[in-house]
């Protein structure tokens, strides 16, 4: 197995520190927290901190919402435009308040079926609402992961239903060679995210895909298999790539990596393929 570039995994302990506290100039910066911000934004904040001559920290990028039915849809659809801190800071709204937020978001462009919208509002009102949330939901059932449903809930918001992407913003997954760069690369993108700039099918994309590590090992394996065999993608044309299993994903999940590390890996793999 290929060694993963060693970038620090976001340190979740600094997620609670959201304010720069005035501190003596000798106090150390918290680079591990800054590293948790998307690369470019992290550098911007670092500039501000240096100007301030003080120490500081910033919330981690990988905000986790409480597990519950519908959470995956929030992860899959809301992060097209903004990260989950928007959701976190709105915590405490009642069902009408969350429903109103969804009105706003639909007017800004998120496309949801009535069923998806209902699930999202139910989740937010229950787990991010004005009443204490119920005990964590029972573990997922043993039903086999459904690649098509996973794609619709997690990927289609950005990459579109037809997997053709959005010009200059989200790369296509249809006919995207990245899917077959190596056995593991696609799973790493899903688990750890991917930051641009990248070129896909001749188009430039300079964006950042967040990690989708809330998906289970089996779900990611199913999603990889689905992507490699739909939208005109043909896994059979790559006999050298063995089928990725849930056990493989479990190993990848333990790696410390982030969107920039995955991009570095991509650069390596693309360079090798030339």
């Amino acid at each position: 197995m290929r060694a993963t570039p060693t970038h620090l995994r976001p340190n979740k302990t600094c997620a609670t520190l959201s304010v720069i506290a005035p501190a003596p100039a000798s106090a150390a910066l918290r680079p591990h927290c800054l590293a948790a911000l998307p690369g470019a934004i992290g550098r911007l904040v670092l500039t501000a901190l240096l100007l301030a001559g003080g120490a500081g920290s910033a919330p981690a990028q990988n905000i986790e919402l409480p597990p519950g039915p519908g959470r995956a849809l929030v992860y899959g659809r809301c992060r097209t435009c903004h990260d989950l801190q928007y959701v976190e800071e709105s915590k405490g709204l009642d069902a009408v308040g969350w429903d109103g937020i969804l009105d706003d978001m639909e007017s800004y462009g998120v496309v949801l079926s009535p069923e998806e919208r209902r699930k999202i509002v139910d989740y937010l009102a229950t787990y991010m609402g004005d009443q204490p949330p119920p005990a964590p939901a029972a573990a997922a059932s043993d039903q086999p992961a459904d690649g098509a449903a996973l794609y619709a809930g997690n990927c289609a918001g950005c990459h579109q239903e037809n997997a053709e992407g959005v010009e200059e913003t989200f790369p296509p997954l249809a006919g995207n060679d990245d899917l077959f760069l190596s056995k593991d690369f696609l799973a790493r993108v899903i688990l750890h995210g991917l930051s641009g700039p990248i070129t896909v099918k001749g188009g430039q994309y300079d964006n950042e895909m967040p990690a989708f590590d809330h998906l289970s090992d089996a779900e990611i394996a199913a999603l990889v298999a689905y992507l490699r065999s739909h939208f005109g993608n043909d896994a059979a044309a790559h006999p050298d790539l063995a089928r990725l299993t849930a056990e493989d994903v479990a190993v990848l999940r333990a790696e410390e990596a982030g969107p920039e590390a995955v991009r570095a890996l991509r650069d390596e793999l693309v360079g090798k393929g030339r």
Binding site: S18, V19, I20, P22, L37, P38, A40, I41, L44, V45, A48, L49, G56, A58, P59, Q61, R79, C81, H82, D83, Q85, Y86, E89, E208, P210
Partner: peptide, 16 residues
């Protein structure tokens, strides 16, 4: 800075 949304670079300046 106080980050409100890292993806969009939304941030607030502490009064200090």
């Amino acid at each position: 800075m106080i980050i409100h949304n890292a993806k969009l670079g939304v941030m607030e300046t502490p009064l200090s």
